[in-house]
Design a binder for these strands. Structure first.
Length: 418
DNA sequence: CGTCCACAGGAATGACGGGCGG
DNA sequence: CCGCCCGTCATTCCTGTGGACG
C-alpha cells in the first residue's frame, strides 16, 4: 500500500512538473464560449437584430437555426443571449433565457421540467402527467411577467423520437398568456429536419432562419490559433500541428469541435510523451486515440443484446460476409444467445437495435431490394475492426465467446459468396 | 407485366421499475 | 399504503414495397 502511494505521488509530481504545455486546458473544451467567435460575425449580427425587440419587452420572432455539428450554432446562440440578458438587466427589462438540450433531456417531460427549472418552479422529475408539467410552466410564466426565450438545442433528435406535439404546444403557448411571452429558438444539426415538421409547426417556428455553414480549413486555423493562445504556453505549438488539425477537421464537414478535440488530445499525447513541442505526429496519434475511445465508449454503454447484434456483424465479417442482411444477422445472433444462455429478442426488435446502432454510427445499414429475394437491409460495420477485437476480449459477456463460431456461419461460409 | 420474397417499419399493447400525491 | 402516471423496453400484429423472376 505504502509503495502504491509513493508511486502515485511520483505520477502526480511528474504531472505537475512537466505540465508546461497547458496554460488553461478548459479553453479547448467545446462547452467553452470564447469572447470572440471568428467567422461568425454575420450570424451574430443577424441573431442580434432578431432578438433585439425583447429589450423593448416585445416578443421576438421565433428562430430556426440549422447547420452541421461543430459549426458554432450553440456557441453563437449562447453568446448572443448572454449579451442580450446583460443588456436587459442593465435597462431593467425582464428577459430570461432558458436553454435546453433536447437530446440530453430526451423526452417532452424532461424538456418541460427544464423549462420549469429556469423559472424556479420545482417539479418532480417523474410522477406527473406531461400536461400537468406544461400547465405549471404556463401558470408560473404568467405570474412572473417576463419575456422568456426558449432555446431548444438538438431539437431534431427529440422530434425524430417523439413527434411534433411538444413544438405544437410551445408555439401556441403565447395565445394563453397575457403578461408574459415566449419566443422559441430551435437548433437542428439535421438539414432535412424541416421535412419532419408539420406545416403549421414549421411556419410558426421558422419566422426567421439562420444557416450555419461548415468552416473551411483556414477558418478553422483561425479558431484554433485563437484558442491555442489561451490554452497553451508560448512556443510549445508547432504551426504544422495546427494546420493538420484544421485540415483533418475540414475534411470531415468542417467540424470545429473535432478540430479542438484533436488539438487538445494532441497536447495530452505530447505531454505524456515528455515531448518539448506539439507536432504533427501527436495530432495523428490523437486522431487514432479519439476514434478508439469513441468506439470503446460506445461499446461499453451498449446493452447486452446490442452487443450481441454488433458482434454478429463482426463475426459475419470474419467469415468474409462483409455486408450481411437482417436475416443472416438474426441467425447468428440467435446462436450467440443460445450459447450464453439468454433468451432471444424478436426479429422486429433486433431490426430496431440495428437501426439504433446505425444512428450511433457503429453500423452502416441501408435498405435494399433484391427483387424476388425480398426487401431487406444491408448491414456492415461502420468502424475499423481492430479496436473492436480488443474491446470484445475485454468484455465480460463477449469474452466468453472468443472461441465460439456459430454453426450457421460454417454452413454459409463458402456457400454464400456475394 | 404481375407475383411474391423478406423483410422494413408503424401502431397498439403490455410488463416493469420508479416516483408522486393524498 | 394505494392508485396513478411516468419512461423504457419488448412483443405482437400489421401494412407496405422494390424489383428479379417466371
Amino acid at each position: 500500500m505504502k509503495k502504491e502511494v509513493d508511486m502515485l505521488d511520483s505520477v502526480f509530481e511528474h504531472f505537475l512538473k512537466n505540465n508546461h504545455f497547458f496554460r488553461d486546458r478548459d479553453v479547448l473544451r467545446h462547452d467553452y464560449i470564447p469572447k470572440k467567435l471568428p467567422h461568425r460575425e454575420d450570424q451574430i449580427r443577424h441573431l442580434g437584430m432578431i432578438v433585439a425587440p425583447l429589450l423593448k419587452a416585445e416578443r421576438c420572432s421565433n428562430i430556426f437555426i440549422y447547420g452541421k455539428t461543430g459549426t458554432g450554432k450553440t456557441a453563437v446562440m449562447k453568446y448572443v443571449l448572454s449579451q442580450l440578458v446583460q443588456k436587459a438587466v442593465k435597462f431593467g427589462v425582464p428577459v430570461r433565457a432558458a436553454y435546453v438540450n433536447c437530446r440530453l433531456a430526451g423526452t417532452e417531460y424532461r424538456v418541460f421540467t427544464r423549462l420549469c427549472d429556469s423559472l424556479n418552479i420545482h417539479v418532480p422529475f417523474t410522477g406527473l402527467a406531461v400536461g400537468e408539467v406544461f400547465d405549471r410552466f404556463k401558470r408560473g410564466l404568467e405570474t412572473q411577467n417576463l419575456s422568456l426565450i426558449v432555446v431548444l438545442d438538438e431539437l431534431d433528435e427529440l422530434i425524430k423520437a417523439r413527434g411534433n406535439v411538444l413544438l405544437y404546444q410551445l408555439t401556441r403557448v403565447n395565445g394563453a398568456l397575457c403578461n408574459s411571452t415566449v419566443s422559441i429558438i430551435g437548433i437542428s444539426n439535421d438539414l432535412r429536419f424541416k421535412e419532419m415538421l408539420e406545416p403549421r409547426v414549421l411556419s410558426a417556428l421558422s419566422e426567421e432562419e439562420v444557416m450555419f455553414k461548415p468552416y473551411n480549413a483556414s477558418e478553422l486555423q483561425d479558431i484554433l490559433w485563437q484558442r491555442a493562445e489561451l490554452a497553451f504556453c508560448n512556443g510549445v505549438l508547432l504551426e504544422g500541428a495546427v494546420s493538420l488539425c484544421a485540415a483533418l477537421a475540414a475534411a470531415e464537414h468542417g467540424d470545429a469541435r473535432r478540430a479542438l478535440d484533436l488539438l487538445r488530445v494532441a497536447g495530452e499525447v505530447a505531454e505524456r510523451k515528455n515531448a518539448k513541442i506539439i507536432a504533427e505526429d501527436h495530432v495523428r496519434e490523437a486522431e487514432k486515440r479519439i476514434e478508439r475511445n469513441r468506439v470503446i465508449d460506445a461499446l461499453t454503454n451498449l446493452t447486452l443484446h446490442s452487443k450481441f447484434v454488433l458482434y454478429s456483424v463482426y463475426l459475419l465479417g470474419k467469415a468474409n460476409i462483409y455486408s450481411a442482411i437482417t436475416g443472416d444477422i438474426y441467425e447468428v445472433y440467435t446462436e450467440l444467445c443460445k450459447e450464453i444462455g439468454v433468451s432471444t429478442l424478436t426479429q422486429r426488435r433486433v431490426s430496431g437495435l440495428v437501426s439504433e446502432l446505425d444512428s450511433i454510427g457503429l453500423l452502416n445499414s441501408r435498405v435494399i431490394s433484391r427483387g424476388r429475394y425480398g426487401r431487406t437491409k444491408k448491414i456492415s460495420l461502420a468502424i475499423p475492426r481492430s479496436p473492436l477485437t480488443k474491446a470484445y476480449t475485454d468484455d465480460a459477456h463477449l469474452g466468453q465467446l472468443t472461441n465460439f463460431t456459430p454453426k450457421c456461419l460454417i454452413i454459409k461460409f463458402g456457400k454464400t459468396k456475394h
